[in-house]
Design a protein around this nucleic acid. Structure first.
Lengths: 113, 113
DNA sequence: TATGCTACATACCAAAATGTATGTATTATT
DNA sequence: AATAATACATACATTTTGGTATGTAGCATA
């Protein structure tokens, strides 16, 4: 049947939901992981590291991560343009979790799940 | 511009992508978390715990989690019906990571981010 | 003057995810 | 015979997300 009547009963637990929203999306996890592995990556390097992403989605995703203060964007005013991306403090705090998740994923994949 | 030429260059890192896909979706994180908190929940209890979910999405999401072996579904052949959901081993392995993420979310929310 | 380099922007379109509304099954109870 | 309880199923509509194709800026080099 339809919707529920009650409003959010356990306000605190919504932080799970909150967190998942910042790292959801098709590419955010990988972008954060690659920035962790390489420390600093230019736009074109990210594009080549994620071969399945389009420029539109890459730019869009990077802007969202930047807006959430998970990554930092440094622009060099040169021609041709140069922009470097790095993990911001809040993004770095997510690394242990992504590391753990990655290991879980490796294990799952190894067992064919 | 368009797509890239290269195929996936870093095969191993795709486990990040793999893992994110199993726990992605609008409600999976919360469902796993609530099952962890309550140990066992009936369908109706889950529905009341997630007041914003519809029966269609709840059922659909539970089936996906079950298919990925993250949760377990136990049916009691009674009338009216009774079905209990619990975390399966693979799902339990995700708890430390969801716990970490939840703490991160709590902190972010507390600071207004 | 044309082309290349790099990091995008943007209009339009397709696919995927989620929501709405309504229906079903079975047995006990009124 | 009608109603209640519980856990769904399902057709259809809408929203959200992602994809395609093409364009722009500005300077250097051929």
């Amino acid at each position: 049947m339809k919707k529920k009547e009650k409003i959010c009963p356990e306000v605190a637990t919504c932080s799970v939901d909150y967190a998942f929203k910042r790292i959801g999306g098709k590419y955010k996890g990988r972008i954060l992981w690659y920035l962790h592995e390489h420390t600093v990556l230019r736009y074109g390097e990210l594009s080549r590291t994620l071969p399945d992403i389009t420029t539109k989605m890459l730019t869009q995703t990077l802007r969202e991560l930047e807006g959430d203060l998970l990554i930092h964007r440094k622009v060099y005013h040169e021609v041709p343009p140069k922009v470097e991306y790095t993990l911001a403090p809040f993004g770095k705090e997510l690394i242990p979790f992504i590391t753990y998740l990655k290991q879980w994923g490796d294990k799952q994949m190894a067992n064919g799940h």
